[in-house]
Design a protein around this nucleic acid. Structure first.
Lengths: 81, 81, 81, 81
DNA sequence: ACGTTTGCGCTTTAGC
DNA sequence: GCTAAAGCGCAAACGT
């Protein structure tokens, strides 16, 4: 058969794309790890920095929620018409 | 003070680097998600593909572990001295 | 009130069950530690033994995963209907 | 050779003992998991219960430390002579 | 859409 | 004291 196993090839392609992306993601995780190692070497406390970042993410998230709520209300009140 | 809060600046820089990297990583996760969506749209079964990838990763990992074990044995037997 | 704080009692019971089990688990961990100490005292290399066990566990796990994958494929192909 | 591979046998024995113990430990972990599932089914909040248990462990630990400190001081002061 | 279940990242602990 | 592995908690993913 000249066409080969087309479905199998497609599957292989997908699997490889995902594995490639997963590897990239792993690389970034390693980079993050390195940054933590670096700041630790400069006498910062890793745990505290992690807490800071978590907090900032939460606040960012809360802000987005508040914004979304505002827009919902605004739409209800016809402010954007 | 012309130097500002140096430690604070350094911390801010680290935090921002980490946040940037985390964002990138998130982007890649989204890409992976997209690939799954795409293959699903092409009639592949997501769960099966995930299982394939997981299995491949495990086998890869087991192979590495086996290799490491061999080296440990070798070291024990003084093969590398 | 003759019934006492029922919910509180139930909670206390759960907490104590969990603490008891956790303690048991800790005991077993200590036993494992002792076995390693014993084999070390008999001139075995701890690191190597750990590597062996890890490898065996991985292979066992990979085998199970492979089996699960087969079954997933089978289900996809309607082999069990 | 009538004696077989003695060192190998001893190793196998150790490995099996450890694997057995590890399995038991795993079983207990599963039991704990079950308890959490059960209390969750009875409308308790898993996360809160975990927090309680952690807190109790900490307090127990703190009490032991305080006790140890007291004994150290006591010994210094010749209270137990 | 929700609840359950599994996978993944972080935290913590143990070994070196 | 640091690195690496194991256990735990969370969050996304699957099934209902």
């Amino acid at each position: 058969m000249s066409e080969g196993n087309i479905a199998g090839d497609a599957l292989r392609l997908y699997v490889e794309r995902i594995e490639r992306l997963t590897e990239e993601r792993k690389g970034i995780s390693d980079d993050i790890r390195d940054v933590y190692a670096e700041l630790k070497a400069n006498s910062f406390d890793t745990k505290t920095v992690r807490a800071c970042i978590r907090l900032r993410a939460q606040e960012r998230h809360a802000r987005q929620e508040a914004q979304a709520l505002l827009e919902t209300y605004g739409a209800q009140l016809g402010l954007f018409d």
